[in-house]
Deep mutational scan, measured.
Amino acid sequence: MALNTPQITPTKKITVRAIGEELPRGDYQRCPQCDMLFSLPEINSHQSAYCPRCQAKIRDGRDWSLTRLAAMAFTMLLLMPFAWGEPLLHIWLLGIRIDANVMQGIWQMTKQGDAITGSMVFFCVIGAPLILVTSIAYLWFGNRLGMNLRPVLLMLERLKEWVMLDIYLVGIGVASIKVQDYAHIQAGVGLFSFVALVILTTVTLSHLNVEELWERFYPQRPATRRDEKLRVCLGCHFTGYPDQRGRCPRCHIPLRLRRRHSLQKCWAALLASIVLLLPANLLPISIIYLNGGRQEDTILSGIMSLASSNIAVAGIVFIASILVPFTKVIVMFTLLLSIHFKCQQGLRTRILLLRMVTWIGRWSMLDLFVISLTMSLINRDQILAFTMGPAAFYFGAAVILTILAVEWLDSRLLWDAHESGNARFDD
């Protein structure tokens, strides 16, 4: 018995066209964080690309023209004298008006014999932002004059995390709450300039795509075929072959399989920071003279006294001054041990922890910024005066060393310790 099946006739004509040209192939790229070699397709503007294995951002879609970056830099340069030299806060102490600005706080630190601690604050609040705007201006002028731009481009990517104007702005709020127990506070004209400078700096850093600047100024022929001998440069993120001198053909720094002496430098910085954190938390970090009496505060006791007036601000200072430094030390110690013992479990967790400490590390400088600003506000000789204690130097040095330890660690070593050939990683 035959089955009668109805015929289905399409209502619209289906047209099949042959592909007349070869589909576009992607360029081969190595991930600078996990060293995976993959094919990167062509990316349009405002599109980002991520590593298929570790999800690290390979290409950032946010990109401004150099002219727009230069305009932002010149605007920031105009704001800087007002943000640093004009009063941020006014207080009335014992019937006398006192003005506080950024430069005055750094000068008070240096004047009291601790120039190293003052230079830490100076670099993060004044030096690094000033280098940022002058570097962008150098790129703008240098591109037109045919100057060598490689050193500036190499420095810009590392400079971003040292620009800490946003953290200093939080420190202004913390210092205001600490001082309000002794005097009446009012915002100064410099505060508005400083807030504007923070906003412009944040926007500029978020749109400063150094890798795209490398592509514009020093374009290189990408690798179009897969080759395990391809290496990625950690300076400019170019994937290719080393030249005859073993250097990256684009930025001219040595092109090595792994960062040289990464573990040794990381261990040295980490152990030194552990040693410095002990006096930083045991010795007094601030000293207040009130009517001839002397009151010393460690980091913890200062947080407890701050909690009596504002528990939320005390929580912020606790996280930045105690929780973050010790968390960074514990995480980095764990990561280094996992590399030495070739741990194969929990790779995803370790990668996330490394990215976390990379982002939060700079916030530990908050305590030094609060001390710097408070020193310029309260300084009335023996009637009422505020000065920093010996722990300030140890704390600042420990924070900087932990930042350097994270920067010096080559994250690809975590993958080397893991089993080879993993296309995915999980716990």
Rank of each mutant, 00 (worst) to 15 (best):
T9C: 12
Q104A: 14
V329C: 10
R144W: 13
W415S: 09
M375E: 13
C34D: 00
C248M: 00
A307I: 06
Q112R: 05
D27R: 14
V399F: 02
M375C: 08
S364K: 02
L336M: 10
T334G: 09
G95Q: 06
H340G: 08
R362M: 02
I371G: 01
A100T: 11
V189S: 10
N291R: 12
L78H: 06
A417F: 11
L368G: 04
A398W: 06
E296Y: 14
R59K: 13
L282E: 04
L353G: 13
K178D: 03
W162P: 01
Q264T: 01
Y168G: 13
D427I: 15
R231A: 09
L23P: 04
E157G: 08
V152N: 03
R144F: 06
Q382N: 15
W64P: 14
V198G: 13
T201H: 06
Q47G: 10
L354E: 09
R221K: 10
Q7M: 14
P242E: 06
P279V: 11
V406M: 13
A312P: 09
L354D: 15
H46E: 10
V102R: 01
D27L: 12
D99N: 11
W92K: 01
Y394T: 02
F122C: 13
R68Y: 10
I299Y: 01
E21R: 10
I136P: 04
F141A: 07
D367H: 00
L352Y: 12
N4E: 11
R158T: 15
I199Q: 05
Y168E: 09
F122P: 00
V313F: 06
P24F: 08
R245S: 07
N101V: 01
R250N: 04
P41M: 10
L277Y: 02
Q47F: 15
T334R: 14
G146Y: 01
E228Y: 07
A280P: 03
L366T: 14
R25T: 12
T239Y: 03
F217P: 05
L409P: 03
F194D: 14
L306Q: 00
P219F: 06
I383C: 02
F123G: 01
L191T: 15
G113N: 08
V195K: 03
L191E: 10
G302M: 01
P254F: 01
P325F: 02
P284Q: 14
E157Q: 15
S420M: 10
L366G: 13
R68P: 02
S301G: 07
I378C: 01
R221D: 10
S301P: 09
T110W: 01
W359V: 12
A307R: 07
I136F: 14
D416G: 12
V189F: 06
M120E: 03
T402F: 09
H261N: 03
E21T: 09
I177S: 10
A385Y: 04
V163Y: 07
T11G: 12
E419P: 07
R150D: 03
T75P: 14
D60M: 14
F386Q: 00
V198E: 11
G20H: 10
F194L: 12
E419T: 11
I131L: 04
C251F: 00
R348N: 12
R25W: 12
T5G: 12
F38L: 07
F74R: 00
I351S: 09
V317C: 02
P151R: 01
A18D: 11
H207D: 07
S273P: 04
F194S: 12
T5W: 10
L353Y: 09
L373M: 08
R25A: 08
I91P: 01
A391C: 08
P32T: 14
T15G: 14
F122I: 08
E42A: 13
I177E: 03
L352N: 10
F74V: 10
A115W: 02
G302S: 01
R150C: 04
A405V: 04
F82N: 10
S372L: 03
P279M: 08
T402E: 03
R259M: 10
I285R: 00
V317F: 13
